[in-house]
Design a binder for these strands. Structure first.
Lengths: 337, 337
DNA sequence: TAAATTTATGCAATCGTTCCCGAGAACGAT
DNA sequence: ATCGTTCTCGGGAACGATTGCATAAATTTA
C-alpha cells in the first residue's frame, strides 16, 4: 500500500544508474553539477526519503536508542525522557521508550525486544523487582553500549548517573525533625534498589545526627514500588497499627507519595496535623494541596540529558571505552510547612 | 562492537547453506527432522535472533507503529499508551512514542520522522496548535494506515475514536449548576481542536437547559492547551478581573486543570468556597485534595486499545479499507462536593 | 597525433534475510 | 535399465542503499 520512492525509481526516471543518484544526493565531488541539480530537483519533487532499514542493514547501526523505565506516568521519568529526547533528536537519534511497570519479567522481555530490534544503545533505570541483572550483563559483555540512570546496578561496569539520594533523604528527614517530628517512619521501594539503599542511608544518618533512634518497625519496603495499591495500603496500615505511631513519614518516591497520601486520606488521617509527610517526588501537583508536602526534587531533565550524552559518547566512540563515569547530581529540597 | 550472529554464521558452522538454515528455523516442511534439530540446537546455543532490519527490508514492513501524542506526562495519554502497548505487544508490534508538546512544528517533524522510519501505521492525537493537517493528508493519500484518537481531524477519512466529550462536558457543567453555581466560566484548549468544540457544545447545552445565559467573557481558550503556564495564568486572571466574577470554572483538560488550580492558589482563591471547579482529567492525584474537584474521566486505556485494534486491522487488511468507523466512548463523571 | 590525465558515470559486491528454482539422491514402478 | 516422484538441500536473485573499481568520454599534455 504505502510504497515510498527508492533510488531506483529516481534512476529509472532520469536514465541514470542508482550509484550516480546515490552519489548525487550525497553531494560527492565526482558528480557533475548539472546531474546533481537534475537529481536533487527530482528527489525533492517526489519527496524522496532514503529507506532507513536498507541504511541500517548497510551501516550496521540503527541510529536509535532504547529506553527502559518503570512508567512514563511517573513525573520523574517523563521529565527524564524529555531530557533524553532533547539530546537524542539533536544528534539525529530516535528514541524507543519501553515501560517495565516495575516488573522484572517485563523488563527482561523489553530488553530482549530492544536488543533484537538492533538498537545502538540502551538507557536504563531498573525495575523495582529486578534483583538479577544478567539480561543486561549478557548484552554488556557482547559490547552493547548502555548507561544506567536513577536506579543503577552495582555489578555492571559502565557509565552511571544518579541523584544524590543520600543527601536528599538526609535533608528531607532533617526537615521533618526540625519541624518537630520525633517518630519518623520511612516508606521505601524494594530493598535491593540502589535508590532505596541510598535513601535509607540518608534517613538513618539524619536520625542519628539529631540523636534519634532508628526503629526498624518504622521502615517499610514495598517490593513493587507501590505499583499495586494494596502494597502501599498494607505498609501504611502497619505503621498506623503500631502502638507507638509515627508522627511523620519520609517517603522514597513519587508513586509511593501519592499512594501514601491516598491511604492516609482513606484512613482519615489529616496531613500534616496528624501526620507530617515529606519525600522524593517530581510532581508539581503536590504543591496544590492546602498544606503542600515538602519534596525532594531530582533534576530529572538534566539527568536524562547527561545519560544520553554519555550513551552517545559510548556509541560513537572509535575505540572501546574502559573508563566509566559515575555522575552524581545534587537534589533540591522544596521545604513547605 | 555488538555483532549478533547471522544465518551465515550458522550455515558455515554447520556446513549448510543459508537457505537451508533459514528454512529449518522457520520449520518448513522441506527440511529433514534431523537437520532441523541440528540447526535449532545450534541457533539456541548461540542465541540467534534474526536481524529485524534485513527482515523489514525484505518483507517491506517493520512490525512497528508510531504514536503521536502531546505529552506522556499527561495522565490521559500515559493511560492510553498503556492500552496501546497492551494490544500492540500481544500482536507482535513495537510501539514508537513521540511527543509534540502541543507544537505544530514538532508534530510535523515527528510524523515526518516516523514515516521515514517506515513504520507500518500511525496512531495520532493532534497537537493543540495543529490547524493544518496536510502532513497527515499527504501520508494518508499515499496509503499509510492511520487512526486518530481523542483529538481528531474532520477532513481525513479513516478510523477515529473519541470520548463522548459533549456528554462529559454537559454532565460536569450540570453538576456545577446543581451545586448552586450560577456564573460558570469555561477554560478551554485551543479553539479548533475537536475536543474543544465538543466540550464547549456540552457546556453551552448544559447552561441552556438550566436556563442560564452563555456569557462570551466567561469562555477562555488557551491556544497551547496550557503548555505554557503564562497562558493559563493570563486566562484565569482575565476571568478574575471581570466585574461580574464567575463562581465556577469548567475546565476542558488535564493540564489546564492543574494549571488553573495553581493560578487560583497563587491568587489565594479558595477552592471550592470561592470558586467551584470541575473538568476533564484522568489524574487520580486530584482526589487527594481536601475538597477534591469533580472530574470527567475518559476511558483512556480502552481508547488506546480500541485505536490499536483498528489500526492493526487497517495494516493487516488484504484489501484497501473504505468503510471507516467513528467510535465514541462514554465518559464517566466522578462527582465530589 | 598519440598518450596521459581528468571527469563523469556504471557495474557489481555488500549488508542479512527470504524464496523461487533447480539439482541430486533415493525409491518404487514399469 | 529407465523414468517419474518425492524428499532434501543449495544457488542465486531480490529488498534499498553505499562504495571500490572499472570504463568511457572529454580534456590536457607531450
Amino acid at each position: 500500500m504505502f510504497e515510498p520512492p527508492t533510488l531506483k525509481d529516481i534512476a529509472n526516471a532520469l536514465g541514470l544508474s542508482t550509484s550516480t543518484v546515490s552519489r548525487a544526493l550525497r553531494d560527492t565531488y565526482e558528480i557533475s553539477a548539472k546531474t546533481k541539480k537534475l537529481v536533487f530537483d527530482y528527489a525533492e519533487k517526489i519527496n524522496y526519503q532514503p529507506n532507513p532499514n536498507a541504511l541500517s542493514l548497510k551501516e550496521r547501526r540503527t541510529k536509535s536508542i532504547g529506553v527502559v523505565v518503570s512508567e512514563v506516568a511517573n513525573h520523574y521519568f517523563s521529565q527524564a525522557i524529555n531530557g533524553i529526547e532533547s539530546i537524542a533528536y539533536d544528534r539525529g537519534y530516535h528514541v524507543i521508550i519501553t515501560q517495565t511497570h516495575e516488573s522484572y519479567l517485563r523488563e527482561k522481555i523489553n530488553v530482549q525486544h530492544l536488543a533484537s530490534r538492533s538498537i545502538d544503545g540502551l538507557l536504563v533505570s531498573l525495575s523495582a523487582e529486578t534483583a538479577d541483572t544478567s539480561h543486561f550483563n549478557y548484552l554488556h559483555e557482547r559490547g552493547m553500549p548502555m548507561v544506567f540512570f536513577d536506579r543503577v546496578p552495582n555489578n555492571i561496569n559502565t557509565h552511571k548517573i544518579t541523584a544524590n539520594n543520600e543527601q536528599g533523604a538526609f535533608e528531607a528527614t532533617s526537615h521533618l525533625i526540625k519541624s518537630g517530628c520525633k517518630r519518623i517512619a520511612h516508606l521505601a521501594s524494594s530493598d535491593h534498589l540502589s535508590i532505596s539503599i541510598e535513601r535509607l542511608r540518608g534517613y538513618t544518618a539524619a536520625l542519628h545526627q539529631h540523636g534519634l533512634q532508628v526503629n526498624p518497625d518504622y521502615i517499610k519496603h514495598c517490593p513493587h514500588g507501590g505499583m499495586f495499591p494494596e502494597e502501599t495500603e498494607h505498609a501504611v496500615s502497619e505503621l498506623m497499627n503500631l502502638k507507638d505511631k509515627p508522627d511523620a513519614i519520609f517517603i522514597a518516591g513519587d508513586r509511593l507519595s501519592i499512594g501514601c497520601l491516598e491511604v492516609l486520606k482513606k484512613l482519615n488521617i489529616k496531613v500534616p496535623e496528624q501526620m507530617a509527610v515529606a519525600g522524593f517526588s517530581n510532581s508539581n501537583v503536590l504543591d496544590l494541596f492546602e498544606y503542600p508536602m515538602s519534596s525532594v526534587r531530582q533534576p530529572a531533565f538534566e539527568m536524562g540529558e547527561a545519560a544520553t550524552e554519555m550513551l552517545l559518547q559510548l556509541i560513537e566512540s572509535k575505540y572501546p571505552v574502559t573508563e566509566f563515569k559515575d555522575k552524581v547530581i545534587d537534589t533540591e529540597l522544596f521545604a513547605r510547612d
